[in-house]
Design a protein around this nucleic acid. Structure first.
Lengths: 346, 346
DNA sequence: ATTCAATGCGCAAACGATTGTGCTTGCGTT
DNA sequence: AACGCAAGCACAATCGTTTGCGCATTGAAT
C-alpha cells in the first residue's frame, strides 16, 4: 500500500507467484514475448499480475546489467547566466524527448570544479557529456579525444584538439559589429575582452582586428583591454579606458556581463550612451531591449546550440567508434537598437 | 591506455593481480581498512595499484547493492528564467557539496510535463525531489504527503497540503512595495497579476490589498489584472490599463517578466517612467539596475531558497519517516532605485 | 518409424560492488 | 603444551535484470 511496499515488487515475485521462471517474466515485460515465442496465455498472466502489483522494473539493476544509464551529463560554468541557461534549457528538453535524463553540474567558472564535475559524472556512468568549458586549455580533456567516449563541447572549443563542438561564429559576429561601428563613423573603437586564450575571446578579438584592418585602421593595442567575461572586469576596464586621453568613441563588449559593467562605469563617469559613447554587446538577452538605451547586440543562437549539441552527442553515442567529427559554428547576427550613434568623420 | 580499458578496471582486476580477495580490496578502497584491520602493507599495495590503474568504482554496481543513487531530482518551470536559474544554481552546488548529483528537468511551465518529469525521476530512483510547481493544484502530489518519500517544494506551495516547502514571504513583500508607493503619494495603483490560484500570486495580491486597506484606500478590482507571469501578459494588460480613463499612477508588477512586458507597453504608449508612471517589479535581477530607468524591485532571496531547500530535503532523506515538517517563508525586501516618483496628493 | 523443425520455456552466468560471517595464522599466557 | 585472542583476510550471498544456450515437447513430413 505504501510506496515502499510497491517498489519492492520484482521479477522474482511475479515469477514465483505464477510458478514460472524469471526469464520468461523479464522477456514478456520487456516486450520481447514475440521474439522468444512466449505463449499468449503466459504473456497475459504475467501482464495482469504485473499491472496488479504495479511492477516497476528497477533501473538500478537494469543499468548495471546493460551498462547504460540513459543519462547524460551537462557541465555549465554558471547556470544563472541567461546565456548558459538558454543552452541548458534546450539540452534538457531535447534529452528528455530522447528518453535521456540530464545531470547538471555547475562548474562556477572554475577549472578545478569543471574537472571534478567531469569525473563525478563519469563515475555516475553518464553515457555522454556536454561541456561548456571554462579553462584556457583542454589538457584535461586529452583522454576524450580518442573516439571511445562521447563528449561535445559547447560555446567554446580548443583549436588544437579534435573534439566535437558547437559554438557561435564569433569571429564573424565580432567583425560585423565592428564594421557596423566603422560604418557609423567610429575609428577609435575599444574592445573589452574576456578570458584570454579561450576560443570565444580569441575569435572575437580576431574579428574585431580583421574589421579594423579591413578599413585600414591601425590597431591600437591600448584599446584592447580586459581579461575576464565578468561584470567586474567590464567595469574596471571601462573606468580605465575613460580616463585615457583621446578617448574612444565606441566600445565593443565581448560579453553581456562585461557590457553591464561598462554601463555602470559609463554612467558613473556621467557619460551618456550613445551621445558620448557608443556600445555594442555580445549575447542578446530579453532585457537588452529594455536597457538605457536599448542595447545593440551580437545575438548568438544559444538555444540552437543546445539542441545541436544534443544531436551531435546522440550521434556519437549511437556510433561510438567513429571519428569524433569536427565542429559546427552557428551564425551570429547584429540586433540593431539604440546604443550606437552615427558620428561625423573627422 | 584507452578509456575503455581504463573504465574496465574493477575490484576483481585489482584483487587478481594482487592475489588477494575482492573483499579486501573493496574494504580498503572504501576507506574501511582500519575497521576491518587490513594491514598497512596490504593497504598500500591496493592503493598503489588502484591509483596506477585509475580505478573508479562503478556507481551502477554500488547503487544496486546499496539501493541508493546519491542523486536528487530538480524540476524547474523554466531554467532560462534567471529567477529559477538562481535557485537551480544553489541547488546543484549544495547537492554536490553533499556528494549528490542533480538530475534537472524543465517542465516548461506545463503541468503535464511536470507530472511526467516527476515520474521519470522516480523511476530513476532519485532519493528526493525538489520541485518548483507550476500548477494551480497539488493533487498530483497527494502520494508524497505520506512521509515515505522526500520532496520539497520551492517558490510555491499548496496551502491545503502538508508538503515541506520554502518560498518567499510574498505577502509582506507586496505589502511593503505597495505601502512605499502609497507613501510616495500614489492612490491609484494597478496590480499586474500572475497565474491565479498559485500561492505566489495569491499572497502577493493579498499583500497589495492589505496595504491599500491599511491606508483606507478602496480596492478597485479593475486595477487588478492579468493571469500569467509572462512578459506577454504584462504587455497586454498594461496596454489595456493605459487605455482606461482615470489612469493609474503606479503599477506593481508581480514578476520580472510581467515588468518587462509592462515596460514595453509603457514605452509604446510614449509614457516616461517614473514621470508619467511609477513601477515596482518583483524579482531583483542583475540587469534591473541598468534598465531605463533603474527599476525599484522587491528582491527575493532565491539563492537562499535553493540552499535551504537542499538542507530540508537532506533532513528528510536522512530521517525519512518523520513528519514532513512545515514550510519556511524567507523575507523579501525592497530595493530602491529610480522607477518610483513622489507625487503630490490631490 | 524416424527425422526435423517449430514451439515454449528454463538454467545459470553475468554486471560490479558490499558485507555478515567465519577461517586461518601467530603470539602471549598459564 | 594447551588455550585464548586478536590480527588479517576470504567466502559466498546479495541487489534485480538480461540473455546465450539448451532442453523438452509436439506435430508433420518422409
Amino acid at each position: 500500500m505504501t510506496i515502499d511496499t510497491i517498489s519492492k515488487v520484482t521479477l522474482k515475485h511475479i515469477a514465483e507467484t505464477l510458478g514460472i521462471s524469471i526469464t520468461t517474466v523479464s522477456r514478456v515485460l520487456s516486450g520481447q514475448a514475440r521474439k522468444y515465442r512466449i505463449s499468449q496465455e503466459t504473456e497475459s498472466f504475467i501482464r495482469n499480475l504485473a499491472n496488479e502489483l504495479k511492477f516497476v522494473p528497477s533501473q538500478l539493476a537494469r543499468n548495471l546489467r546493460l551498462n547504460r544509464t540513459t543519462t547524460i551529463g551537462l557541465v555549465i560554468p554558471d547556470i544563472s547566466n541567461p546565456y548558459f541557461a538558454g543552452i541548458a534549457n534546450k539540452v534538457t528538453v531535447e534529452a528528455h524527448r530522447n528518453g535521456y535524463g540530464v545531470i547538471l553540474c555547475d562548474s562556477q567558472g572554475n577549472i578545478d570544479m569543471e574537472i571534478e564535475s567531469i569525473e563525478n559524472l563519469r563515475s555516475r556512468n553518464v553515457e555522454g557529456l556536454i561541456l561548456c568549458p571554462v579553462g584556457q586549455s583542454g589538457q584535461h580533456l586529452k583522454d576524450y579525444e580518442s573516439n571511445n567516449y562521447s563528449i561535445v563541447l559547447v560555446d567554446r572549443y580548443f583549436a588544437e584538439m579534435s573534439l566535437s563542438h558547437v559554438a557561435s561564429d564569433n569571429r564573424n559576429g565580432s567583425k560585423i559589429a565592428t564594421n557596423y561601428l566603422i560604418d557609423k563613423g567610429h575609428q577609435r573603437i575599444a574592445c573589452l575582452q574576456g578570458l584570454h586564450n579561450t576560443s570565444t575571446n580569441e575569435d572575437r578579438v580576431k574579428g574585431y582586428s580583421e574589421a579594423l584592418s579591413g578599413h585600414n585602421i591601425k590597431i591600437d593595442t591600448s584599446l584592447i583591454a580586459g581579461d575576464s567575461f565578468s561584470e567586474q572586469s567590464g567595469y574596471v576596464e571601462t573606468k580605465l579606458l575613460l580616463k585615457k586621453p583621446r578617448r574612444c568613441t565606441a566600445v565593443l563588449a565581448l560579453s553581456n556581463l562585461i557590457a553591464l559593467g561598462a554601463l555602470r562605469a559609463i554612467s558613473e563617469e556621467g557619460l551618456k550612451i550613445p551621445d558620448d559613447l557608443s556600445i555594442i554587446s555580445f549575447d542578446d538577452q530579453p532585457y537588452m531591449a529594455y536597457l538605457s538605451p536599448p542595447m545593440t547586440t551580437v545575438a548568438q543562437e544559444n538555444a540552437e546550440m543546445g539542441q545541436i549539441a544534443v544531436k551531435m552527442l546522440f550521434d556519437r553515442i549511437r556510433a561510438p567508434h567513429t571519428n569524433p567529427g569536427g565542429g559546427i559554428l552557428l551564425p551570429t547576427h547584429l540586433v540593431h537598437r539604440k546604443s550606437v550613434k552615427e558620428i561625423s568623420l573627422i
